[in-house]
Simulated scan of single mutants.
Amino acid sequence: MTPDQPTDPLADQPTDQELLRAHVDGDPDAFGVLFGRHRDRLWAVAVRTMGNPEDAADGLQDGLIAAYRRAGSFRGEAAVTTWLHRVVVNACLDRLRAAKVRRTETLPDDLEEYGNRGSLASATEAEQDPADLSVRDERRRAVLDALATLPDEQRAALVLVDMEGYPVAEVAEMLDCAVGTVKSRCSRGRARLAVLLGVLREDGDAAHPAPGNPDPPRPVRSTTAPRAPPTPADP
Results as ranks from 00 to 15, higher is better:
F74H: 04
A207V: 10
D40A: 12
A131M: 06
G63Y: 05
V24P: 07
S122M: 13
T2L: 08
P217Y: 08
V24A: 12
D203N: 11
T15K: 05
A207Q: 13
V80F: 00
D129R: 09
T15C: 02
F35Y: 15
Q17I: 12
P211N: 08
P9T: 04
R21S: 14
T124D: 14
A44Y: 00
D27M: 07
Q61V: 06
T231I: 08
L107S: 01
V87N: 03
A146Y: 00
T15I: 03
R86N: 06
S187M: 12
P28T: 12
R86K: 11
E173L: 08
L200S: 10
Q61G: 09
R69H: 08
W43F: 02
V88S: 01
P167N: 02
T149F: 01
A56V: 03
R227F: 02
V88A: 03
L60G: 07
S122G: 06
S134C: 05
V171A: 00
V195T: 15
D234Y: 09
E138R: 13
L193I: 12
A210S: 13
L96Y: 05
A98Q: 14
G115V: 05
E170K: 05
E125C: 06
P235D: 08
R192F: 01
A191E: 14
E202Y: 07
R95W: 02
A225C: 13
G118T: 05
A79R: 10
R97S: 14
A71W: 01
V87E: 06
D94P: 04
E164T: 00
P108Y: 07
R201D: 11
A123V: 13
Q128E: 11
S73H: 09
T181K: 08
L60M: 11
N116Q: 14
D25Q: 13
A57H: 10
V89M: 02
A79D: 07
R155S: 00
A156T: 02
A210D: 14
D62S: 13
Q5E: 12
A22D: 13
Q5P: 00
E105F: 04
D132H: 07
V45D: 03
L193Q: 08
G198D: 15
D203K: 14
M50V: 00
G118Q: 03
R86S: 15
R185P: 06
T231S: 11
P217W: 09
T231M: 10
D129I: 04
R188T: 14
F74V: 02
A99W: 07
L197I: 10
L150T: 01
S73P: 01
D152L: 01
Q17K: 10
G63E: 04
A22R: 14
A210N: 13
F74D: 02
A178N: 09
G118E: 05
A225V: 08
Q128C: 11
T223I: 09
R188V: 15
A79V: 00
A57N: 12
R86Q: 14
V87L: 11
V143K: 00
A156D: 00
R140F: 04
L107R: 02
R192I: 09
V179I: 13
P6E: 03
D8N: 15
V179K: 11
G198N: 15
A172D: 02
R201Q: 15
C92M: 04
V182E: 01
A233N: 10
R141G: 08
E112V: 10
R75C: 10
A98L: 13
S73Y: 09
